[in-house]
Design a binder for these strands. Sequence first.
DNA 1: CTAATTTTGTACTGATTAATAAAGAATTAA
DNA 2: TTAATTCTTTATTAATCAGTACAAAATTAG
Lengths: 224, 224
Amino acid sequence: MYSMSIFDGSVQKYYDDFSTGYRNGVKEVSKSGRPREFKDTAVIDAAMELFWTNGYEACSTEDLCKHTGLGRGSLYNAYGSKHELYEQALLRYHQIGIEAQVEMLQNLGPIKDRLRALLDWAIEEDFSNEKRRGCLLINAALERAQRDPAVERLFKQHVDLLEEALHRAIDTGKESGEISQQRQTPDLVSLFMGNYYGLRVLNVAMQNRERAVQMAEATLTAIF
Amino acid sequence: MYSMSIFDGSVQKYYDDFSTGYRNGVKEVSKSGRPREFKDTAVIDAAMELFWTNGYEACSTEDLCKHTGLGRGSLYNAYGSKHELYEQALLRYHQIGIEAQVEMLQNLGPIKDRLRALLDWAIEEDFSNEKRRGCLLINAALERAQRDPAVERLFKQHVDLLEEALHRAIDTGKESGEISQQRQTPDLVSLFMGNYYGLRVLNVAMQNRERAVQMAEATLTAIF
DNA sequence: CTAATTTTGTACTGATTAATAAAGAATTAA
DNA sequence: TTAATTCTTTATTAATCAGTACAAAATTAG
């Protein structure tokens, strides 16, 4: 079992400096001693790619060393364990993703276009990479949320933030008259969320882009 | 890599006889020699439970021996490999599940009630077990579909069968006047499928039954 | 310069992995 | 009874697993 060592998923933007590590989720900057030879962000990105492709269990520490370019000593010195590196990778994925998603929903322009942008973005994510590995956070949640509190917590946070942004966007649409006042906002949010996550799951497994586009359009039709 | 050794996901109902094995997906019945001491279905059910709870990678052959009660020799003699047993477990889950789902959609009574029954059944599945392990096939697809042709094939087949049954049910509803003729059947099928799979994913991760019920109701409202 | 500190590379740990080998037990066929 | 067949039990394999120990290397502080 793992303790909840991801400290806070909030918007601590890019951390692309040299010579830092994350021990217990706390950023450490060393002042003396031999300097690190790697960029923290590059290592976490590489780890993220690997966990994304393989999942947690099917990803060995040797794989991680190879893909990050670090030796075992460096990797364990900097990140402590496979699981802590996993948490960093998930956290980074979460931060980048939620920022992109919320931004789309806060854009100018018709609400319908904002929602479509989100769906199109998800489809592009799912079909642009030939490895078709879907959404790292969904994969992580289904693989591990039931027994890994860090994963459960981060996924919940991600979903909650997306849901709040959707709520705001739909309310805006109702105020502007783009969406009928008769509809209940929570119902519309549910409808979108369900279709969004269903879309992403089916994309990985079915690998049918036309179907995905049709699903996205059906979702918008149901809301507007 | 694995070859596609699941022969056919079609409706070969229950196979609960003694002394049978599955080698390359072909049922073998021995006529001489020492008889087996276990029921094939019981072993596959036990394996299914374990794969369901742990996933494929996190499930060791020793775990499988313990839970099925078989020794290593018996297990390997009967099923050949961890992966072949996994295929049997998935196939069994698929057969039981698709039969239940299609049956609900073919029931008598209003179409809306049939669709609600399906959603309620999914919610009950997701929340009745304290292990909250969701749908084994979805878990398997997200963990392995990209690199395991047997998993990819079976999941596709499962989704296709559900989709066809939904298509028939919705067409029936349009004929009877329960659903507007104006709506496009593929759109309504997409809408339901998206919400159904999204619901199941969010259930595992969010573990919020009220929210699930509300999502289900929102789905029905969007269709009727 | 020396001492203190940190990172790096390598060798190594004990545990666990999926799978196999082989001998004995239980059955059928003749 | 004997031979052939199949299943069960146990021991064992080689590989891999996550993680550690430790010395050499590279830096800062004084």
